[in-house]
């Protein structure tokens, strides 16, 4: 079954993931244009973009554990998952700047250095930006695989920051981002606990 799944994943084109990954954005645009958002549409736009960015970030972090532990390879899609995450994160920040803060530059600058939830969020965004800029073969060649991999471990720092950004923005202690934080820490722990692929007996599963 593992072999069948891997075979199917090998045939699935990466653009199909992009297509699927942009569905949440299309739905959001649709809801915005048809009045399907709530009483405060700005808040809903910000939140939906932010959440979707986190989902793709966690998905990209799950690629290596999925390969090592389950023997299922999503490797071909990892770059697209990361770039989709960055797409949503970028739109999330843009919606905050344009709609929530209405381009009050002074207020934004003061808040970004002073408010913990914005410090966490913006720090994570800068890291994701660095990862997105270097998400191409040319950068891997130029930096060297070793240095490139080191840089891209930043994803493991950005992800918990994103959940802290979510937790700190709310008045009471919320359950959902705490669950996501636990999932991220579990994925990180699995990378350390399972440093190389588990050999799954049947040779067909090796690839």
């Amino acid at each position: 079954m593992r072999a069948a799944l891997n075979g199917w994943l090998r045939r699935l084109p990466v653009w199909a993931l992009w297509l699927g990954g942009l569905v949440p954005l299309a739905l959001l645009v649709w809801d915005t244009l048809t009045g399907g958002l709530g009483i405060d549409p700005i808040r809903d736009i910000e939140h939906r973009l932010g959440r979707t960015a986190l989902y793709f970030l966690v998905a990209s972090l799950a690629v290596t554990p999925a390969l090592r532990i389950l023997g299922i390879s999503f490797m071909r899609f990892r770059r697209a998952l990361g770039l989709l995450c960055f797409t949503y994160a970028g739109l999330h920040v843009l919606s905050w700047m344009l709609m929530d803060m209405a381009l009050l530059w002074g207020a934004m600058a003061r808040d970004v250095v002073k408010r913990p939830y914005l410090v966490f969020g913006m720090a994570a965004f800068v890291m994701l930006l660095a990862l997105a800029i270097t998400s191409n073969n040319w950068s891997v060649r130029r930096m060297g695989a070793q240095a490139w991999r080191r840089l891209h471990r930043l994803a493991y720092l950005a992800a918990p920051l994103v959940t802290l950004h979510w937790i700190w923005a709310l008045k009471t202690f919320p359950l959902e981002p705490v669950l996501w934080l636990s999932a991220i820490l579990l994925l990180l722990a699995s990378r350390i606990a399972v440093p190389r692929p588990i050999r799954w007996g049947a040779p067909a599963a090796a690839k």
């Binding site: 405060d40 929530d100 207020a107 003061r110 408010r115 913990p116 939830y117 923005a169």
Partner: peptide
């Protein structure tokens, strides 16, 4: 944790 200077 956030500014009270402005409102939406």
């Amino acid at each position: 944790r956030w500014s009270q200077a402005t409102e939406r």
